[in-house]
Deep mutational scan, measured.
Amino acid sequence: TQSIHIEKSDTAADTYGFSLSSVEEDGIRRLYVNSVKETGLASKKGLKAGDEILEINNRAADALNSSMLKDFLSQPSLGLLVRT
């Protein structure tokens, strides 16, 4: 696993530069990185398409609903625990 911390203040970007997809496997919801913008903040921090997001801001990914995800992604900083 890899811990990634991203700050939007690093650039004038209003997004982190990646998209997520939610997949249900064996009754457990998993979050995967769908795509990463080549010039985006997430790419600079090493996030890659296909990575599994285990935690966002110290909250287990399978416990997050879509409104919580939207809220986290609109925050000025983001902490991710990722399995590559």
Rank of each mutant, 00 (worst) to 15 (best):
T1D: 12
T1I: 14
T1Y: 13
T1M: 12
Q2K: 15
Q2S: 08
Q2T: 13
Q2D: 00
S3K: 14
S3H: 15
S3V: 14
S3I: 12
H5W: 09
H5P: 01
H5L: 08
I6H: 02
I6E: 01
E7D: 09
E7S: 13
K8I: 07
K8C: 04
K8G: 03
S9E: 08
S9G: 14
S9F: 05
D10N: 10
D10K: 10
D10E: 10
T11Y: 07
T11P: 13
T11F: 10
T11C: 11
A12P: 10
A12W: 07
A13M: 07
D14E: 14
T15F: 08
T15G: 15
T15N: 12
T15Q: 09
Y16V: 04
G17K: 01
F18L: 10
S19R: 10
S19I: 01
S19L: 05
S21P: 00
S22F: 15
V23N: 08
V23F: 09
V23P: 02
V23I: 08
E25C: 11
E25G: 08
D26R: 11
D26M: 09
D26T: 07
G27V: 01
G27W: 00
I28C: 13
R29L: 08
R30C: 05
L31Y: 12
L31M: 07
L31D: 05
L31I: 07
Y32S: 03
Y32M: 08
V33Y: 01
N34A: 13
S35R: 11
S35W: 09
K37L: 12
K37M: 12
E38S: 11
T39D: 15
G40R: 02
G40H: 00
G40Q: 02
G40P: 00
G40M: 01
L41Y: 08
L41R: 09
A42M: 03
A42T: 04
S43P: 05
S43F: 12
S43L: 06
K44G: 09
K44R: 15
K45E: 15
K45H: 09
K45G: 01
G46A: 02
G46W: 04
L47H: 01
L47F: 01
L47I: 12
L47S: 03
K48A: 08
A49E: 12
A49Y: 06
D51I: 05
D51Y: 07
E52A: 02
E52C: 00
E52F: 02
I53S: 02
L54A: 01
E55N: 05
E55T: 07
E55H: 05
I56V: 10
I56S: 03
N57W: 00
N57S: 03
A60S: 12
A61G: 02
D62S: 13
A63Q: 12
A63N: 10
L64P: 03
L64E: 03
L64G: 02
S66C: 13
S66K: 13
S67A: 14
S67M: 10
M68Q: 13
M68S: 07
M68V: 13
L69M: 12
D71S: 12
D71L: 11
F72H: 12
F72Y: 14
F72A: 14
F72L: 13
F72E: 07
S74Q: 11
S74K: 15
S74M: 15
Q75F: 05
Q75P: 02
Q75W: 08
Q75I: 03
P76M: 04
P76W: 09
S77T: 10
S77E: 10
S77H: 05
L78K: 03
L78V: 11
G79N: 15
G79V: 14
L80H: 02
L80F: 05
L81S: 09
L81M: 10
L81R: 13
L81I: 08
L81Y: 05
V82R: 04
V82E: 10
R83E: 15
